[in-house]
Design a protein around this nucleic acid. Structure first.
Length: 406
RNA sequence: GGGCGGGUUCCAGAGCGGUCAAAUGGGGCAGACUGUAAAUCUGCUGGCGUGAUGCCUUCGGAGGUUCGAAUCCUUCCCCGCCCA
């Protein structure tokens, strides 16, 4: 069921941020169709951060399309680089991983990828295969292929250089290592987020040096995080993880700013361009309420990772909790041995709802704490002589506390 | 090797002998409002403790001067820029 190059292009070019260079990409597709040889499509993975979020999914979805069109997907586990310790930028201590950790992380990573596409059909390689054995002489020869000013073209290097912030020498080596990966797997296409443009282009240079046809580059848009400003990333804490529970996923999706609704619809739930456009119009015309639009996006998102039932349930629960301010139907139960009388402050800390007593006092003073539905107003309040309480902090932190007397 | 500028609370960044747990912004949290964990507004944001202008621990590390130090001195570590 091989589609023509043109049809493939139409599918693959949809929703990309950029394809570089466009004509080479088309030529590769045409040749693939003619010869029946699938394209080798590379995706690099960072095993130091195995938690996938829905921003990654934008790329994986595209990869899935390649796979469905019969092309060969290649995952490169960056185990070698992870073992050395990625310095990139400001993250101060990103400790070097052991081989075992790297392996375990890679496994988790691929499990999560498996939610979105068929990992069993993909080629999985570790870059330690070819990087670990390089001699220093080879590294120098490699480094000689690129100039410092070329390196400084890269956005973040440039930026840091301008701002007089440190750039460690070995940071220059990472793009080179990544580029070597492309050479070693003979990638026809490399796919990633738009922030990878420089690295991917550098890989083309290395491939040319190695006498290979340079890879085409498919760049996917970077999804903004739930804060609506910065790109989604784990370290910024503005992400929705692929493994988030339905409730969390739904809630986080509901917390995105209105301006992001259509974008999430499109790139997080993979609505078609037409659907997205339609939503946009309805929002503008006022026929679709932003809240409802967001709920639709949230529900579709949950449905993708947890199924339709879970999605519906998450939606109902969200309405119950936030529109009607009732309790969720499942509350974590914490059992503690505390002797009466127990102060509310102590209970909050013991139940793990707040990190310190000072914090608990602050929250009470601000009216953010309730016990069995009644707001606590007194910092020195104590729990009544009963064995079970529902503690609530803010709008969405609940615990059912069971006290056992000793 | 030399010169200069730096290392402050989650982040950025003021402070430069007491009035500093430390300005301001960001982030986070809470409240009000609401259409949601949107937006907006308000408050809080080291720990312990309370009828408190209370106690303790923090300003790269270690010492020291002083009644008193984030602020001065010594030394060590780290970073940036420039010159060589």
């Amino acid at each position: 069921m091989t589609l023509s190059a043109r049809e493939q292009y139409r599918i693959l070019a949809d929703s990309v941020a950029e394809i570089l260079p466009e004509d080479e990409f088309v030529a590769k597709l045409e040749r693939s169709v003619q010869t029946g040889v699938p394209l080798r499509v590379k995706l690099g993975c960072d095993p130091s951060r195995p938690d996938l979020h829905i921003g990654h999914a934008v790329v994986l979805e595209k990869l899935r399309q390649f796979q469905e069109l019969g092309h060969q997907v290649i995952f490169i586990i960056g185990d070698f680089t992870a073992m050395i310790g990625d310095p990139s930028g400001r993250s101060k201590t990103r400790p070097a991983l052991t081989l075992e950790e790297t392996k375990a992380n890679a496994r988790t990573y691929l499990e999560q990828v498996g939610i979105l596409l068929d990992v069993s059909r993909a080629e999985i390689r570790h870059n330690s295969e070819w990087l670990a054995g390089l001699t220093f002489a080879e590294v120098i020869r490699l480094a000689a292929q690129v100039t410092v000013s070329q390196m400084l073209e890269r956005d973040d290097f440039h930026d840091r250089f301008e701002r007089e912030q440190p750039i460690a020498l070995h940071e220059f080596l990472y793009p080179l290592a990544q580029g070597l990966d492309s050479v070693h797997v003979r990638a026809d296409v490399e796919i990633g987020g738009t922030d990878q443009r420089f690295n991917f282009l550098l890989a083309r240079e290395l491939q040319k040096h190695a006498g290979q046809e340079p890879q085409a580059i498919v760049l996917m848009p970077l999804l903004e995080g739930t804060d609506g400003v910065q790109k989604m990333s784990k370290s910024l804490g503005n992400y929705i993880a692929v493994l988030d529970s339905p409730r969390e996923m739904f809630g986080k999706a509901m917390s995105i700013p209105d301006t992001l609704i259509v974008r999430y619809y499109r790139f997080a739930t993979f609505a078609t361009a037409e659907q997205a456009q339609q939503m946009e119009q309805q929002l503008q015309a006022g026929t679709l309420h932003p809240r409802d639009a967001k709920a639709l996006v949230a529900e579709r998102l949950v449905a993708r990772y947890h199924g339709d039932d879970a999605a519906r349930h998450a939606r109902e629960e969200f309405d119950r909790m936030f529109r009607h301010k009732q309790l969720p139907d499942e509350i974590e139960i914490v059992e503690l041995e505390l002797a009466h009388p127990v102060s509310v402050v102590d209970a909050l800390v013991a139940a793990g709802l707040v990190p310190s007593k000072s914090e608990a006092r602050r929250l009470i003073a601000q009216g953010g704490v309730s016990v069995d539905g009644d707001r606590v107003t007194d910092i020195a309040a104590r729990l009544a002589e009963q064995s079970e309480f529902t503690l609530k902090v803010g709008k969405r932190r609940f615990v059912r506390l069971r006290l056992r007397s000793r």
